[in-house]
Design a protein around this nucleic acid. Structure first.
Lengths: 328, 328
DNA sequence: CTGAAAGCGCTTACAG
DNA sequence: CTGAAAGCGCTTACAG
């Protein structure tokens, strides 16, 4: 009950050797035009397509990139996913999608990636214990942490320059007459949230200003509740710096509910520039993450490491920019 | 430069045959506890993991499901993606993610899926020409169209019952005192948009009411612009039925911009029940798609077809329900 | 229950 | 440029 047709079948029909068939489909191999044509004609007739598995078994490489994502619910990530999918497709790679529920990726989550011997890995918005990550190193599989920096700098990472962004946002708000500020953070211990806060604090410190910190969780509901609490406690600041846009939208809705005027009574600034930030209902001032460049840097690194593994490591940080709208 | 360690290495260390090693990792094969333990100990020591490619080459099956998605930008889809990823993981399958830009999936988009000999395929929110789809049939690869019905009913599809939903929405609005309605459609020729409209029209027809149709594109911007046009032309109806939520939010923002009171001056109802619909800024009345059940039906079909291919075909339609909020 | 051997569909030195 | 042959790392009848 042999059902799939293989290179041997094509070879027979084309009247050439199996090796020649293989050469037609293997990039970089040499075949005469005549042989190529015969093979392609036979292949067409039989509906032949090379088996990727046999191919990978021999070459010990695959054309698959593992993409590990957490929190696809944040509208920032669908954008990232789309761009990665397109970029990898453009380079001839397919995407094995792994969804993780936890902030720290578990060994089982990435077992698949190792079993399939992926050519490279992108991990977005999540970290990973050192010894789990090491298994990629051991197999010389290049790995990029996207939008998350590890405390141990033994892996390549690509982020927006969050420290500078925090600073710029601080200076911007001070120029707008900031008196007291609240920073609404994302999940604790995420590098993105921490660095944005650090830069912000540094800027304010230069003018001996301070800020209050409220810990939240990078979700709309989290931003909404946090703001409601602040309103209830009568501790409304003159400006909110919110660690991401989706939370900032929650903050805006909480303020709206209490008929607090933005930006007259309080200013709000977010981070990411998700598409919803520009909606008329919000018109949120925010910091744009340079997603395209971030994706490009990630893909370029992976492609160069796949071609020629070096294990080089860097913490790439790309500058974003302020998008001024109506909440400041 | 042999780098990966294989079953033979483990066999040698464990003092058994390679076949025995294989049996330990192959579900359903019989090995004595003693052998199993020896093998597992040796495997642990060497860091062995079975090569999926060699395995697939022999069994001619993979543990990969192809997931083809369009328009991940609509917040409805990240939810769907997450649920599929979790469900497939639970069944021991990985997800090969394919992003397509066009409404109709092209042959090249799915070439990868055939090359990797995926065990099954889910296509969301897009259609596919019959002859492209046929190549899956030829290879006995089960295929489900998710949230899209094909005109030719030769494939399995899973949708919300859009016709009934349209009807119910029509009856609901009429009970609320509908006089004249506007239906804002999604992309033309999508089954979801067409069936929602059809049901809606049927319901209205029973009371000899009619509706005006405006064609849009399932995006926020599309809904926004369409509503602005209607306002400009002074053809505001007493209610809008908008083919999906993200467009409905655009409609609400357009109305807000012109200070038109919802629901006093005009009612708005959407479709999908995306998380943003419940946000205080919108409080959109909508129709909830039973995503969980839809995903479950899809996964169950695929798993049963993978276990035992029958090629059976059905257009599954699951009932959703009205979520009443403040825009009606 | 276990091992030796064949074979899945490819790539790749090696001769010619 | 081309073909015959070995081999990638597994699974699976087949004997024992």
């Amino acid at each position: 009950m042999k059902t799939t047709i293989n290179a041997k079948d094509v070879a027979k029909l084309a009247g050439v050797s199996q090796s020649s068939v293989s050469r037609v489909y293997f990039e970089g191999a040499k075949v005469s035009t005549k042989t190529r044509e015969k093979v392609l004609a036979a292949a067409e007739e039989l509906g032949y397509r090379p088996n990727e598995f046999a191919r990978s078994l021999i070459t010990n490489r695959t054309k698959i990139i593992g993409l590990v994502m957490k929190g696809v619910q944040n509208p920032f990530y669908p954008q990232v996913l789309t761009q990665f999918a397109n970029a990898f497709k453009h380079h001839g790679y397919s995407v094995l999608f792994v969804h993780t529920n936890s902030d720290e990726i578990q060994a089982e989550d990435i077992e698949t990636l190792l079993n399939y011997n992926v050519a490279g890995v992108v991990i977005t918005d999540a970290s990973m214990s050192l010894n789990v990550a090491e298994s990629f190193k051991a197999n010389q599989i290049p790995l990029v942490f996207f939008n998350r920096k590890l405390s141990h700098s033994t892996f390549y990472s690509v982020c927006c320059n969050n420290l500078n962004a925090g600073r710029s946002i601080g200076h911007y708000l001070m120029a707008e007459g900031l008196r007291d500020a609240v920073y609404i953070s994302g999940n604790e211990n995420t590098s993105t949230s921490l660095e944005r806060e650090k830069g912000f604090g540094e800027a304010l410190d230069q003018c001996t200003l301070t800020y209050a910190k409220h810990t939240s969780d990078f979700t709309y509901e989290g931003g909404y509740k946090t703001a409601l609490n602040i309103i209830k406690n009568n501790t409304l600041p003159s400006a909110f710096f919110v660690a991401n846009d989706i939370m900032a939208l929650g903050v805006l809705d909480a303020l709206r509910k209490h008929a607090i005027q933005v930006p007259q009574q309080v200013k709000v600034i977010g981070f990411d520039n998700i598409s919803m930030s520009s909606w008329p209902a919000y018109e949120l001032t925010t910091w744009e993450q340079p997603i395209e460049e971030m994706v490009e840097a990630t893909v370029n690194y992976l492609m160069s490491e796949i071609a020629n593994y070096s294990g080089r490591v860097e913490a790439v940080e790309i500058e974003g920019k302020l998008i001024e709208r109506k909440t400041t």
